[in-house]
Design a protein around this nucleic acid. Structure first.
Lengths: 226, 226
DNA sequence: ACACGATAACTTGCATACTAGTCAACATAT
DNA sequence: ATATGTTGACTAGTATGCAAGTTATCGTGT
């Protein structure tokens, strides 16, 4: 699960972007942390210009907040922005699964099934990080199945906003089981060409984050804007 | 219908962005047109840096294509990119209208009705540009009705890609009538809290562009990449 | 006349320097 | 001691110059 795009040609700006993107989404850089173009440029050994461009891109993803003549900070969580990101992510992925249910690329079926089996193993082994990896791939495979691979870029962009928040939540085995079962039901609906059912299952699946987010809002209120 | 965002604080970069965005989407700059940072900087009287930033933002919207060490061109149309943009736009707006059908902000009802009435007048008067304005506002009001104003930003981003292409198509009175009737049906579904019907009407509505786009692909093939 | 090679004129990416604006600390006055 | 004004250390936005690479033009040789 590497940064968005994983560009082929690597400019200085790309290097800075990838590094910071990772640090922010993995929460190694906490929300509210001040971060200056000059400092980052020094640590990378680049000039300010490529760093600036990377900042600009990260700001577009709502991961940085550039305040002219003041400072740039790792963007604090915002319930509003999180809601927006979840809305878009859900909208796109719902259309993906509906589309896949109606006309999917069957050559992806095997990969989906294999992924699901591995999920079961990860759940048994209580291997949370492996489960997260598989979850990431699973949703990516859904896009492939719908023949809309590009859609995962949109999903990933919006996931990033939520993922870094969920780094603060522990994933219990029970939670993993629930998510796994959702995935299972989703595949059943997909393979059964049942768009309505796939829609409903995915809605429930994506809504499961709500209580987690609410909980983090109270336990880590200092990281929030609103 | 001003450029995306209509930022409050106007930097040099913003000025360049807004200007170029308008020229590209209005097709005053044709797909494939070469455009260099230096030239643009000269005409605006700015340095290359703010222009460069504007280019970067336009490239993110797939309106420019920056080819390092070669040149930057107004991005040619691409059926693939157009399909992607339409997919995302449809996904988001479908979720918007479903959401509005289930729980809308009734204080927007009046504006929607008023807009629809004005559309009828524009159709009668065969005032195409006025109709396009109203159409833009109508879809924006839909987002407001769903209490998801932000969603229109996503829609507008993806519309831009398609809109500039549709500048090449004439809108006949008959076509306007059809679009108007779609809008009418959509509002009926919305006010009747009929999400399924709203979904279906919007799907048909957004699909009406397909033959237009196909036609332009043949008549203006030189502007296309693929 | 035509093919081919060198060169000059472009392009964007990066580095450095300067400007305008904000904020915090400190000194001064009450 | 507290309030206030000034100064200095920061910030991002902008300007300019250089480096690396591509393209097109022009000249040369056949």
């Amino acid at each position: 699960m590497v940064a968005l795009g994983s560009l082929e040609r690597s400019t200085s700006s790309d290097i800075v972007f990838d590094k910071l993107f990772g640090q922010i989404t993995r929460l190694e850089l906490l929300p509210g942390t001040k971060i200056s173009e000059t400092d980052v440029a020094k640590t990378f050994g680049f000039s300010r210009q490529p760093v600036r461009e990377a900042f600009s891109r990260l700001a577009n993803l709502n991961l940085l907040l550039v305040r002219p003549q003041r400072a740039t900070v790792v963007r604090p969580f915002s319930r509003k922005l999180i809601a927006h990101a979840r809305f878009v992510r859900a909208a796109v992925e719902l259309e993906v699964v509906r589309s896949a249910a109606l006309d999917r690329d069957r050559s992806v079926d095997a990969a989906l099934k294999a992924n699901l089996r591995e999920q079961a193993q990860a759940v048994s082994a209580e291997d949370v990080s492996r489960f997260h990896e598989l979850d990431y791939d699973f949703h990516k495979l859904l896009c492939a199945s719908a023949k809309q691979e590009f859609a995962f870029e949109i999903i990933a962009e919006n996931k990033a906003q939520v993922d870094r928040l969920c780094m603060l939540a522990l994933t219990s085995k029970e939670a993993m089981v629930v998510l796994y079962e959702d995935h299972q039901k989703l595949l059943e609906a997909l393979f059964g060409s049942d768009a309505a059912s796939a829609d409903e299952v995915l809605r429930v699946h994506l809504d499961r984050l709500t209580p987690t987010i609410d909980a983090i809002y109270t336990t880590h209120n200092a990281y929030f804007d609103d």
